[in-house]
Design a protein around this nucleic acid. Sequence first.
DNA 1: TATTGTTATACTCTATAACTATA
DNA 2: TATAGTTATAGAGTATAACAATA
Lengths: 161, 161
Amino acid sequence: MSMGDAARKAREVGVVGDATLRGFLGYHIKRAMAVLQADLNKVLKPFGLRMVTYSALVTIVDNPGLRQAQLADALAIERPNLVVILDELEGAGLITRDKVPSDRRAYALNPTLKGRRLAEQATAANRADEARLLQGLAPADRNRVIEVMNQIEHGPGGAQS
Amino acid sequence: MSMGDAARKAREVGVVGDATLRGFLGYHIKRAMAVLQADLNKVLKPFGLRMVTYSALVTIVDNPGLRQAQLADALAIERPNLVVILDELEGAGLITRDKVPSDRRAYALNPTLKGRRLAEQATAANRADEARLLQGLAPADRNRVIEVMNQIEHGPGGAQS
DNA sequence: TATTGTTATACTCTATAACTATA
DNA sequence: TATAGTTATAGAGTATAACAATA
């Protein structure tokens, strides 16, 4: 039995329904996130970056001199996992780990010129890609979605109070 | 230097900014999803279920008799990974793998009575939990968010055309 | 005694190749 | 030759305990 076409088969056998799951907002968010993440990683690949390494690089560019523990907090990842991420960025010449005189245990994270330039280019590419995914979406709707996401993350009222 | 309070330290050292990342819708979705997933798994734990096992069970309840390949497609997971998930559900007595006479390679997945009852209880618990997370959110806003998520997943216009 | 960065480790999730038995 | 379910395996991502140096 040679098929060659998944859609034809689905029509023959009967489409699988997801009535119950579709009732959950989280179901739709999870599936959208999967697409978003795969797409983003594809955009970042030419820059030699992944989602985590991009997020770390951009946060260091935005906050030069910050410590590893602060970065781990900001990105909501564990300190041990951050070590290999920073090894990767440092090995690529995008950041430096600079000893801080006032606390000889700590390292201040700083972007190199190369790091700042790569962050800028990657950010532009990501912006263009997200704009493509969201084409036709009104800015007001976009902002409303962000508000809902922040409510889910921080609870009603938001945590910036 | 004894601290005891992360918030006080943040004020002393300076809060880490995420100006660039906050510009991406995907950033907010990712962080909301992390909270949602942790929360959901906590709710499902008393039922002996995880997100994937719950999704699989509910889809089998909604589509009794479906094949493993169909379920894998519906849940967007690879066939090899589905095997252990179904082993878990079958071992817990929630589903059965029934030989289908017309194709002796395939198994028809069916929920047991216990499986249907557990799915019903878990769904009620998840609904209550999501309602708690989204309290105060207007139904129209909720629907708009779902539309945006579906646009991200399927592209503008949606794939149901 | 607590904290910074680190190592080692483990557990989950996900992805691919290859096998068997059927078609 | 292709498909259904399976096995083995490898790669990410994530989490915890424990260590050396320093506060």
